[in-house]
Design a protein around this nucleic acid. Structure first.
Length: 300
DNA sequence: AACGCGGGGGA
DNA sequence: TCCCCAGCGTT
């Protein structure tokens, strides 16, 4: 969950997830659809599918591999997570290099290479940290201390160098350039895309939903249809905007009500808690439009 | 090596 | 508005 996601965002999901799946075997036995439901709103949904598959492999193995290579072979476990689990869970003398460690290393060694091109160089330099004897003695504690240093003192914008325990060893600080490292290449403008979402409600406010294909955008998640799911009196319900990593999406929402949903519809009111954020925005817009309409009729 | 993939909070 | 977060898998 913490891959590319801040602790404060993860915390409530983590609590609910562990309550639902206290043991690896519980997660392994669950359906991938249910797991994706618990993940809704957290983003990067491939993580949910990979974690589920990972649990199944670990359950089949009878436990976690205890080597970096073994961990690395599991679904969703890349170089960072393999080292994090290796160091924190098993005490292996490795250093997981996340954004915090990257930033600290770029500053300590005053590495000017811009991200993301400079990532390998910075990661390689960071390995020097665990040459230290104390670091090798408690690799997990060391890694987490480094995360905390990056999160609280060696921060991206305004590092609090006077409070830094490593200021005497920091070349960027000595050169007065800490705040500007690591350098970043200018990002290209985020493209815009448009689409349509259809909100079809029945008399009990059940919503017509479908499940997206397992790969690609919002893969495996519940979603509103992009095509009208039935003949109905479709009304404009405005547009919602949602920012993804690589593009900004403007979704035109069309809404309608029918006595009942088409056969085979996936929906129930409870399912809306399992919707990705962009779909929840669109659904809210559709519901607002339909409710306003009924209010108008009442007042008229 | 480059790219696709969410969402939210803080500056 | 922009930045950036305990990154990974596919191509």
């Amino acid at each position: 969950m913490l891959q590319q996601t801040v602790v404060a965002t993860v915390r409530p999901y983590y609590a609910k997830f562990l309550a639902a799946y206290p043991r690896i075997e519980d997660l392994a036995a669950a359906s991938v659809e249910e797991v994706c439901g618990h993940w809704a709103g957290l983003g990067y949904y491939a993580r949910a599918r990979n974690l589920h598959k990972c649990a199944q492999e670990v359950a089949a193995l009878g436990g976690f591999p205890r080597t970096i290579e073994g961990l690395r072979a599991l679904p969703g476990i890349g170089p960072y997570t393999a080292n994090a689990v290796g160091a924190i869970a098993f005490g292996l003398p490795v250093l997981p290099v996340d954004g915090n460690v990257e930033r600290v290393a770029a500053r300590i060694f005053a590495i000017p290479a811009p991200m993301p091109v400079g990532k390998p160089e910075i990661a390689a330099a960071a390995q020097a940290f665990i040459a230290d004897k104390a670091a090798r003695k408690a690799p997990g504690d060391f890694a987490q201390a480094l995360f905390d240093l990056g999160a609280t003192i060696c921060t991206p914008k305004s590092p609090d160098c006077p409070r830094c325990p490593w200021k005497a060893h920091c070349r960027a600080h000595a050169q007065g350039v800490a705040a500007s490292l690591p350098a970043r290449a200018k990002k290209p403008e985020r493209p815009r895309r448009t689409g349509t979402a259809y909100v079809l409600l029945d008399a009990e406010n059940n919503v017509f939903l479908l499940r997206r294909p397992p790969k690609g955008l919002l893969g495996g998640m519940l979603a509103l249809p992009e095509e009208p799911p039935a003949k109905a009196d479709w009304r404009e319900a405005g547009a919602v905007e949602h920012v993804f990593t690589h593009f900004t999406l403007t979704l035109s929402v069309l809404a309608a009500r029918r006595a009942r949903l088409p056969a085979g519809a996936l929906s129930a009111p409870a399912d809306t808690a399992q919707l990705p954020s962009v779909m929840r925005k669109a659904l809210d817009a559709g519901r607002r439009a339909l409710n306003l309409e009924s209010n108008d009729k009442r007042s008229a």
